[in-house]
Design a protein around this nucleic acid. Structure first.
Length: 261
DNA sequence: ATTCGGACCTGAAAGC
DNA sequence: TGCTTTCAGGTCCGAA
């Protein structure tokens, strides 16, 4: 059948990729990579790292449109960039319409030496409140939305999650970091964890045709609070959600709940 | 130190 | 109908 598993880019989707992919490919060998055995899979920020025997890593960053697919042997279309033949009869395919995605292959140390990994901040899902507060404190200036999008601050948050967290915390995306109260920082932390866990629990965001290997669908997009809801009503106060370009990304927020200060 | 615009690509959807 | 414009979940680079 080879129903493709389509995977997309923010922390929840990559985390689900890791969780769903691991049981499907763990202990299998990659026939066209010298028969190296797949030992384990890790998510590092928005990247997937497949640790192989022989001290190698096969890594992927899906960027905007990449996805890892478990397919029947030989399945491919014009957007398939690489195919890895697995023992047991299936293929692992890297499918990437816009071709922004990154593939790494090499010794563990060399792959992890890539600037993307070297500069990656603490993982948004694992970061403690103390660490979160410290990182915010280390920034002298700047707005919250760009802070969240910069993977050097903390790893994993993208445009959807950033908007969702800020809406949930009732804080304006352009709010300056240096005038956040302790209560604001606490709210942001609680909302960050809540949104990430909720999205993972709902299976990530299926916006187009992404689905899980077992046929399940990611339900977060339908349950989202504010991302892409321009002109629709805020679920809290019924005010129209507005859209504004901030740091090169369109940002949706409620002008009443998330007042600028 | 931080933000911004553009670049990298393709394709779907909206606009005219 | 068809042509043009805009926009997309990410990241990097150079300039302000």
């Amino acid at each position: 059948m080879g129903a493709p598993q389509k995977i997309m880019p923010e922390l929840p989707e990559v985390e689900i990729t890791k969780r769903k992919l691991e049981p499907l490919i763990k202990s299998k060998r990659i026939l066209n990579l010298g028969g190296k055995k797949i030992l384990r899979i890790e998510r590092k920020g928005k990247a997937i790292l497949i640790y192989l025997s022989g001290g190698k890593i096969l890594g992927f960053h899906q960027r905007m449109s990449g996805k890892l697919l478990i397919v029947r042997r030989g399945w491919k279309d014009k957007h398939t960039r690489r195919i890895f033949h697995l023992s047991g009869g299936k293929d692992l395919a890297f499918h990437d319409v816009r071709r922004f995605g990154v593939i790494w292959y090499g010794p563990v140390k060399k792959v992890l030496d890539d600037p993307y990994f070297k500069t990656l901040g603490l993982d948004a899902l694992k970061i403690s409140f103390g660490e979160f507060k410290r990182i915010l404190g280390e920034r002298r200036a700047g707005k919250l939305k760009p802070f969240f999008l910069n993977q050097k601050n903390l790893a994993g948050v993208g445009n959807i999650i950033a908007d969702e967290v800020l809406w949930h915390a009732k804080i304006h995306p352009e709010r300056n970091i240096n005038n956040l109260s302790d209560a604001d920082i606490k709210k942001l932390y609680v909302s960050l964890k809540f949104i990430l866990k909720r999205s993972i629990k709902l299976g990530g965001s299926t916006m187009r045709d992404w689905f899980h290997p077992d046929g399940g669908h990611g339900g977060y997009f339908k349950k989202r609070y504010t991302y892409g809801r321009e002109d629709e009503k805020c679920f809290r106060c019924k005010t129209q959600i507005i859209r504004k370009k901030i740091a090169g990304h369109s940002s949706c927020f409620c002008p009443k709940c998330q007042r600028e200060q």
